[in-house]
Amino acid sequence: MPTEDPLSHAFGAESFTNFNSRFHEIVNERKLSNILTLVSRHGKIVHLDAHGVLDISSKPTVPVQTDSIFRIASMTKPITGVAMMILWEEGKWDLEDLVAKHIPEFKDLKVRDDEELVPQNTPMTMKQLMSHSAGFGRSSDYSELNLREGDLQDMVDVLAKKPLYYQPGKDWRYGPSVDIQGYIIQKLSEQRLDEFFEERLFAPLGMHDTGFWVDPSKSARIARIHRYDEDRTLIPAGDTNVFPTERPKFLAGGGGLYSKIEDYWRFSQMLLNGGEFEGRRYLKASTVELMHTNVLESGVNVTLYSPHTRGLGFGMDFAVILDPKAAKTSQGIHSFYWGGFYGTWFWIDPVNDLVVIGFMQLIDGTKPDGAPEVRELSARLVYEAMGKPKP
Results as ranks from 00 to 15, higher is better:
residue 258 Y to C: 09
residue 74 S to Q: 03
residue 207 M to I: 04
residue 17 T to H: 14
residue 7 L to S: 11
residue 305 Y to K: 06
residue 337 Y to P: 08
residue 328 K to S: 14
residue 317 D to E: 12
residue 323 D to F: 06
residue 306 S to M: 06
residue 161 K to L: 13
residue 338 W to P: 10
residue 371 A to E: 08
residue 292 H to C: 11
residue 107 K to W: 03
residue 329 T to S: 01
residue 46 V to P: 09
residue 110 K to V: 05
residue 286 S to Y: 02
residue 43 G to I: 05
residue 7 L to V: 12
residue 369 D to W: 03
residue 358 G to D: 03
residue 320 V to S: 06
residue 5 D to I: 03
residue 294 N to I: 02
residue 111 V to A: 09
residue 319 A to W: 02
residue 34 N to C: 12
residue 78 P to A: 01
residue 319 A to Y: 00
residue 21 S to Y: 08
residue 54 L to C: 04
residue 210 T to M: 02
residue 272 L to V: 01
residue 133 S to T: 11
residue 258 Y to N: 12
residue 217 S to E: 08
residue 265 W to I: 01
residue 110 K to M: 12
residue 25 E to G: 11
residue 104 P to Y: 04
residue 318 F to A: 04
residue 241 N to W: 04
residue 187 K to E: 10
residue 226 H to Q: 05
residue 138 R to K: 11
residue 196 F to K: 01
residue 322 L to N: 12
residue 49 D to V: 07
residue 88 W to C: 06
residue 293 T to S: 12
residue 231 D to G: 13
residue 288 V to E: 10
residue 237 A to C: 07
residue 165 Y to T: 14
residue 284 K to E: 14
residue 24 H to R: 15
residue 80 T to Y: 00
residue 149 E to K: 15
residue 240 T to H: 10
residue 133 S to Y: 00
residue 245 T to G: 05
residue 269 Q to E: 08
residue 188 L to E: 07
residue 37 T to K: 04
residue 330 S to K: 09
residue 114 D to Q: 15
residue 120 Q to S: 10
residue 370 G to C: 03
residue 108 D to R: 08
residue 240 T to S: 15
residue 174 Y to E: 06
residue 170 K to Y: 10
residue 161 K to N: 13
residue 127 K to C: 10
residue 343 G to T: 06
residue 231 D to N: 15
residue 363 I to A: 13
residue 261 I to Y: 00
residue 306 S to N: 09
residue 60 P to T: 03
residue 102 H to D: 04
residue 106 F to G: 06
residue 182 G to Y: 00
residue 114 D to N: 15
residue 282 Y to C: 09
residue 104 P to K: 07
residue 204 P to F: 00
residue 364 D to F: 07
residue 70 F to V: 07
residue 210 T to D: 03
